[in-house]
Computed example of a mutant assay.
Amino acid sequence: MTPRPAFDYNRFQRWRRPFEIGFWVVMLMTNTIFNGMVAWFDDVYRIHRADSFEPWVWEASSSLAILSLVPFVVWPTRRWPIRFDTWKANLKFHLAMSVPFCLAHVGLMIVLRLLAYQALKGWHYHFGNDWPLQLGYEYLKDIRTYFSFVVTITGYGLFVRRLQGEASLLAEPDEGPPVEPVDRPERFLVRKLGKEFLIAASEIEWLQASGNYVNLHVRGRDYPLRATMAGIEERLDPSRFVRVHRSYLVNLDYLAEIEPLDTGDARLTMRDGATLPCSRRFRTQLRERFGDVPVSA
């Protein structure tokens, strides 16, 4: 049984990437405006320490540098996720990542300021006479920025998975025999918006590795399962599910066409029209083992 969504999740998926990019742009733009106003009042209006344009260059250059580094924060949150069961082990990795984040931020920021000062006034920008002290000051700000981004990205991921639905293997009961074989499950449990649903393994069209999750694709929806691709492959029926790529498993019942490519790889077309990659290594195995699958010339 497929859960009926409380909102049009497929429509959200179409707009998800523009929404995510827009969120960071709007957030950092708003931060730039407010911080620029504060810096202008402090350094220009009150003590006349800076020229009128300088606070805006400072804040804009910092925000642009941070905006370019958002993917740099997204990757480690997927590689070392912060959850109740992992945060102690993964915290040290994020502390280590905050150092290159700060260095990259400061380096990009200085380059942008040098260009802006030269273009606007013909001046030369000076970062500071005491570089170690100035870098330490910037790091104290950047480590807070880095971890605020980690918290934001982690919270957003949890929210999306709650809306989307998250799959899990049916647990073996404490007493008595399991309802079905745990090593080769016939169904997966999906939790969504406080409700639970069962999805038949035979209805899974393909699986895709995504960080610490494997997405189960079922009738146009993806349900993330906290597992590794190798681990879940061992639990699925090998006569039905076959590995076609290091990140993909397909259900042969839903495979419509194999299209060879000049590179030696192949493109798989599923019954719903979706296309998936098939690497050269697995293409040969696929054709040898399942020769009755239609192959495009």
Rank of each mutant, 00 (worst) to 15 (best):
Ala171Lys: 07
Leu225Thr: 11
Gly122Val: 06
Leu120Glu: 11
Leu193Phe: 06
Ser239Thr: 01
Gly211Pro: 04
Gly194Ile: 11
Leu158Ile: 13
Glu205Pro: 00
Arg162Asn: 12
Leu198Thr: 13
Phe127Ile: 13
Leu216Lys: 03
Lys121Leu: 09
Leu140Cys: 14
Asp142Lys: 07
Leu207Trp: 00
Gly211Glu: 07
Arg240Met: 10
Asp130Leu: 06
Tyr223Val: 08
Ala200Met: 05
Pro173Trp: 00
Leu140Thr: 12
Ala201Phe: 01
Glu196Asp: 12
Leu169Phe: 01
Gln164Gly: 09
Glu196Asn: 05
Asp130Glu: 13
Ser202Pro: 06
Tyr137Lys: 04
Leu216Met: 07
Gln208Lys: 06
Glu172Thr: 15
Tyr117Lys: 05
Leu189Glu: 15
His126Glu: 15
Ala209Asn: 05
Ala230Pro: 04
Ser239Leu: 03
Val182Tyr: 15
Phe197Tyr: 13
Phe159Asp: 01
Tyr146Asp: 07
Ala209Asp: 06
Val106Gln: 01
Gly157Gln: 10
Glu205Asp: 02
Ile153Tyr: 07
Val242Leu: 06
Leu193Lys: 02
Leu133Phe: 07
Ala167Tyr: 02
Glu205His: 00
Ile110Leu: 12
Pro178Phe: 04
Glu233Asp: 08
Val111Pro: 10
Ala167Phe: 04
Tyr125His: 08
Asp237Lys: 00
Ser210Ala: 10
Val160Ala: 08
Val182Met: 14
Pro185Glu: 08
Ile199Arg: 01
Val182Asp: 15
Leu112Trp: 09
Phe188Arg: 03
Tyr125Gly: 09
Ala119Asn: 00
Leu135Arg: 08
Pro185Lys: 01
Ala230Tyr: 02
Tyr117His: 14
Ile232Asp: 01
Pro181Arg: 02
Phe241Val: 05
Val151Gln: 03
Thr145His: 00
Gly128Asp: 05
Asp130Cys: 09
Val214Thr: 01
Pro185Leu: 09
Leu112Met: 15
Trp206Met: 01
Glu138His: 10
Gln164Asn: 02
Val106Ile: 10
Ser202Ala: 15
Gly220Glu: 05
Met109Lys: 04
Glu196Arg: 06
Ile110Tyr: 05
Asp222Ser: 09
Arg221Val: 13
Asn129Ala: 14
Ala200Glu: 12
Asp142Asn: 15
Leu112Gln: 09
Val214Pro: 00
Phe241Lys: 03
Glu175Val: 13
Arg219Met: 11
